[in-house]
Design a protein around this nucleic acid. Sequence first.
DNA 1: CGTCATGTTGATGGCCGTCAATTCATGTGG
DNA 2: CCACATGAATTGACGGCCATCAACATGACG
Lengths: 240, 240
Amino acid sequence: MHDIYKPIRSKSYSVSCEFCRIGPSICIPKLLENTLDNFINRKKEIAKNQVIVDEGTPLDKIYIINSGAVKTYITVNGKEQINGFYLPGDIIGLNSIHNLKYNNSVCALTNTLVCELKYNELIGLVSQNTHMQNTLLKLMSEDIQDYQQLILCFSQKNAEEKVATFIYSLYLRYARRGHISLNIKLSMSRSDIANYLGLTIETISRILTRMQDLNILTARGKYISIKDLSALIKFAEYHK
Amino acid sequence: MHDIYKPIRSKSYSVSCEFCRIGPSICIPKLLENTLDNFINRKKEIAKNQVIVDEGTPLDKIYIINSGAVKTYITVNGKEQINGFYLPGDIIGLNSIHNLKYNNSVCALTNTLVCELKYNELIGLVSQNTHMQNTLLKLMSEDIQDYQQLILCFSQKNAEEKVATFIYSLYLRYARRGHISLNIKLSMSRSDIANYLGLTIETISRILTRMQDLNILTARGKYISIKDLSALIKFAEYHK
DNA sequence: CGTCATGTTGATGGCCGTCAATTCATGTGG
DNA sequence: CCACATGAATTGACGGCCATCAACATGACG
């Protein structure tokens, strides 16, 4: 954990506000900035491996990733179970509104910049502003939809399809934020991916080399370069 | 599909409004009934095997199950993939708000009573009523949380743990709606369960007989009787 | 009672987890 | 700049879980 004491130099991709998942027309932090002064710290720096939120703490703030990446996880029998990776533009905390407690821990995978947003102010704004209300409902509904898709992925797909889906979804998520590139730098380790997908690092590794042999992609450490996107998409589909 | 022409006699458990997931203090349909007259049909009858919603149709209504049960599914390569079972008190459609289209089909597993609720009116009410707004946010946040748990279940658990989790969650869901009983009548077929859990009917069957041999439950067709709840819970946990 | 759908049980094989050895990457100190 | 150490990733051998295929049993319903 030496990293914590290192100066933070975020070399990674960051979203411009127009591609933030909050939407181009309303940056909640910006709106708050106009209405309520200093309640948000924009672009707070988080060092790699730093735990931003501990499972069970009160939901006082919502975080929006500006650059970098984090993972969220719950602890089961002393072992962490990763349940999400959040990339620039993503919003953390929407699953914790119902009981006003964070239901998972949050840890930075790399040096990360986050926008903080006080929950009370968000809700206050939502109750005054119909547009904001619709935005929040849409965001949460999208999340529900995304999770349903993920469940299908996990319950039906085999290891190869899972890994292909994972990589393709990373590609898609960056692309939707305006960062369209076939070259992806994984911010998480093989072990994190395996944990998340319910596979082992060995399986992940074998599948990546198999895909490399088939000229679908090249994988050198954390750098993945998609060579044949349509083949990747085919691999990601459920085959049976 | 003869069922459609049969008279509907729902013999199954139905929630009283106080155990509806909408909450005891605000039954949205009731509230609407007071404010706007005839826009909701309370307790519409749906026959077994009837498709209530087709994937892709506009989200004009939200449904709340009053009695009976439905499954939701998407169609992939011509085959249905079940992504949820909805029991009395459950709300259908929250995953479809973001694009105002139903993102899955809905089909009745048994004769079912639903409360219909026009989406526009729900939103209208929500924008006027802070309490209602909080309720909706909580409901959706709960859904997100539930789905995250389900993802962990699917990505990490083996077949036995999945089946145990499934049965226990049915028990829990009924219990939370005020129907606490160790005797559960499955409204879905083995094939539906298998489809949903990403297993085969043979595996489901084998696991049920194994649990029967261990005196954890008895399973006779659609009737499951839990003999040892704590053992079931142990089985449902992730072991590794 | 006969038919058809649904559920159960058994035998076999493939996918993927486990264990182990090796290679590669990253950072540190000399 | 190189040698080394440490952890991450890769590759191989083997075994267990669960899907597949097939046969049989049970139940629903006319």
